[in-house]
């Protein structure tokens, strides 16, 4: 198992290095030079040249890559190997600081949404599979299709319309806290966690209230495919020969369900992990609709403005996150089914 984990980790590092270089090179082939936007429309040729020099864009592509990696000195030094992701060309602030600012917002949202989705979807999926075709199964299947039929932002706007505008039971979708609530001292960047750490229950209630609709929106859309996956995998496992044999042996239903669940878990875990990575994409629109100011919104702004260091930093962070999730899944998979590690 340890050897498998190390091998898997080694592959992950290689993947990370390859993606880092690939993203850097691909960025340089985008159909626009970011300098035009940075210098503004009154820039003289001297100003454009000065800015290109400051950003190392006057260097050759291999030299730019070496500077980015930290293997050569440049105006944009230090580089990746020195722990720097550079400074954003939009704001001038270190990309690392900006990631630390935005990432917790997104993580708080998707972790809570993911937990909520799992808590609802897994029992429902198992129940649908166990009960077989019937009203409950039909209802759950309908929900799965219904929830996935519209994108996250559409559901977000619909929920705002119902819960904020019409019924007035949700706070205004204007950010993470009310205008009069003082934010807790920053520790993790997740307001619910930081407010609890500070013992500030008023801030916690406010932050949690502002998260309810975004979390419900993401979870609502996510629950459909998870139910579908769990239901299919459990149903498949229940139709397998070992379940028939267990039934033939007269084992109690609870014990059969435990065997079934364990054997249907492996493929579900993989798919759920992929969904987790996918949620970063869905979170972009939810952050936009609810004015949360997370990594997704920042990523979109960076891409639209060709902020190379920010985009590279965001891709790097998402890649690391995805690789870690997939690594964890592989290890869990190996734990569930030891044959995988051989």
């Amino acid at each position: 198992m340890t050897g498998y984990a190390l091998r898997r980790l080694g592959v992950g590092v290689l993947q990370l290095a390859a993606i880092t270089v690939l993203v850097f090179v691909v960025m340089r082939f985008l159909p626009a030079d970011p300098v035009g936007r940075l210098v503004g429309f009154t820039a003289s040729p001297e100003t454009i040249a000065l800015t290109r020099d400051k950003l190392d864009l006057d260097e050759s592509l291999p030299d730019q890559l070496l500077i980015y990696l930290g293997l050569r000195e440049g105006d944009q030094s230090p580089g990746l190997l020195q722990g720097s992701l550079g400074d954003s060309w939009n704001t001038g602030a270190p990309v690392v600081d900006q990631i630390a600012q935005y990432l917790p917002v997104t993580l708080e949202l998707i972790i809570l949404a993911f937990v909520a989705a799992l808590l609802v979807a897994v029992p429902l999926g198992v129940l649908a599979a166990v009960r077989g075709s019937g009203r409950l199964d039909a209802g759950i299947r309908f929900y799965g299709l219904f929830a996935g039929a519209q994108p996250e932002f559409w559901w977000g706007l619909a929920f705002i319309f119902l819960f904020y505008v019409t019924w007035q039971v949700a706070p205004a979708p204007l950010g993470r806290l009310d205008f009069l609530t003082a934010p807790p001292p920053r520790v993790t960047g997740m307001l619910t966690v930081d407010s609890l750490l500070a013992g500030n229950l008023a801030a916690f209630r406010d932050a949690a209230a502002h998260l309810v609709l975004p979390v419900v929106t993401l979870a609502f859309v996510l629950t459909g495919p998870i139910i579908k996956m769990v239901r299919q995998n459990v149903a498949k496992a229940m139709a397998s020969e070992y379940v028939l044999y267990a039934r033939g042996c007269g084992l109690p239903t609870r014990q059969i369900a435990a065997y079934t669940f364990r054997n249907s878990l492996a493929p579900s875990v993989t798919l759920i992990a992929i969904l987790f990575a996918y949620m970063l994409g869905g979170a972009v629109l939810v952050e936009q609709v609810f004015s949360l100011g997370g990594l997704g919104q920042w990523a979109v702004a960076s891409v639209l403005s060709f902020d190379f260091p920010a985009i590279q930093g965001i891709v790097l962070v998402i890649t690391v996150g995805t690789l870690l999730v997939l690594l964890a899944v592989d290890l869990l998979h190996a734990r569930i089914d030891p044959r995988v590690a051989r």
Binding site: P31, A32, D33, P34, V35, G36, V39, L304, F306
Partner: peptide, 24 residues
Amino acid sequence: MPQAQFADRVFSKHDVGMFLDDQD
């Protein structure tokens, strides 16, 4: 076209023949 591309092509490269502008 995206703002960054517009800025690059109109302000810097000057390779766009016709453009509508209401921001500058």
